[in-house]
Amino acid sequence: MRPERGETPLISNETVSSYLERLASGAPTPGGGAAAGLHAAQAAALVSMVAEFTSGPRYADVQEQAQQISEHARLLMRQGLFAAEEDERLFGALGAAYKLPKESSEQKSERSAAIQNATIAAAAPLASTVEASIEVIKLGQRLLPIGNRSVLSDVAAAAEAARAALATALATLEMNICSIKDIAQRDRLVQAASQASEAIAHADELSAHARAVVAA
């Protein structure tokens, strides 16, 4: 279904070219958070592809395990895509909060509260992207020893895509953390940022391991 004129299309319903043109434009959305979600979705899709190629008589002993990995990866792919779309929607809401009037002290107070609430809400898709990326890396680690050797380089590609998702989400999370006054919410995001930093190292390890296996 085509969006109405002036209506922002869902990333999942537009062409790659359309998305990239919007990303490259001067519009505030989509931005880094949406890109992070799509990196995670691509990482999951690559893991699923390798698992799908791990089938047939040669892989009879591990085919069921590979299929489970593929199914889980597809769920994570959808989680990453949803996070990208939610990031765009919620960042748009944050932009609207900044445009609220601030003439009176009451308006300033309401605007400040709206910005805080919108900033906290906008961090949720980033945390979801981190979570999905961590799970993708774990699936890649499980798949590497059993996967079809002909496509194991794509496990490395998946790890690199997951790393990009984590690093991009981390950069945006750090920016949001600086703006949040609520201690509990800030601590929650600090934890997500810490998990992203740790997972980046795991993504590097998986990529290096996969490349070493392919080169052996």
Score class of each variant (00 low, 15 high):
129 T>W: 01
114 A>I: 03
165 A>H: 14
76 L>M: 06
97 A>Q: 08
111 R>Y: 06
129 T>K: 10
127 A>L: 06
73 A>W: 00
113 A>P: 00
147 G>D: 01
162 A>P: 00
114 A>T: 12
144 L>E: 09
98 Y>N: 13
88 E>I: 07
158 A>I: 06
125 P>Y: 01
91 F>I: 08
73 A>T: 08
105 S>H: 06
98 Y>I: 12
166 L>K: 15
87 D>K: 03
93 A>S: 11
72 H>V: 07
128 S>P: 01
72 H>I: 01
159 A>I: 12
142 R>V: 10
168 T>D: 12
142 R>C: 08
109 S>F: 01
150 S>E: 01
79 Q>G: 06
72 H>K: 15
144 L>K: 14
164 A>E: 08
107 Q>A: 03
107 Q>I: 03
83 A>D: 00
128 S>G: 05
160 E>W: 08
145 P>M: 13
99 K>Q: 14
96 A>P: 00
88 E>V: 09
157 A>H: 09
123 A>T: 12
162 A>F: 09
157 A>V: 12
140 G>S: 10
83 A>H: 02
88 E>F: 02
127 A>F: 02
138 K>L: 11
166 L>G: 12
100 L>C: 11
108 K>I: 05
91 F>Q: 13
80 G>D: 08
102 K>R: 15
124 A>S: 11
100 L>W: 02
157 A>I: 08
122 A>V: 12
93 A>Y: 01
109 S>Y: 05
122 A>E: 03
103 E>C: 02
143 L>E: 07
134 I>V: 15
100 L>M: 15
75 L>D: 12
156 A>H: 10
161 A>N: 10
134 I>L: 14
137 I>D: 11
72 H>F: 00
93 A>H: 04
151 V>M: 06
107 Q>D: 07
154 D>A: 09
82 F>L: 11
151 V>C: 04
80 G>N: 07
112 S>I: 02
105 S>D: 11
119 T>R: 11
124 A>G: 07
118 A>D: 00
165 A>D: 07
161 A>L: 05
133 S>W: 11
79 Q>E: 13
92 G>L: 04
164 A>W: 02
149 R>F: 03
76 L>V: 07
94 L>G: 03
110 E>F: 04
120 I>G: 05
118 A>K: 04
143 L>T: 14
117 N>T: 01
168 T>C: 12
87 D>Q: 06
140 G>I: 10
86 E>N: 04
166 L>T: 12
76 L>A: 04
87 D>S: 10
88 E>G: 02
74 R>Q: 09
143 L>D: 04
92 G>D: 08
100 L>Q: 13
163 R>D: 08
114 A>L: 04
121 A>C: 07
102 K>T: 05
99 K>D: 10
159 A>C: 06
110 E>P: 03
106 E>V: 07
161 A>E: 10
81 L>W: 01
101 P>L: 08
152 L>F: 05
153 S>T: 15
119 T>D: 04
164 A>P: 03
130 V>M: 07
151 V>Y: 03
150 S>L: 05
111 R>V: 04
147 G>C: 02
111 R>K: 15
136 V>H: 07
136 V>W: 05
126 L>P: 07
111 R>F: 00
134 I>F: 00
116 Q>T: 02
139 L>Y: 08
111 R>C: 00
95 G>H: 01
120 I>F: 04
86 E>I: 02
141 Q>M: 11
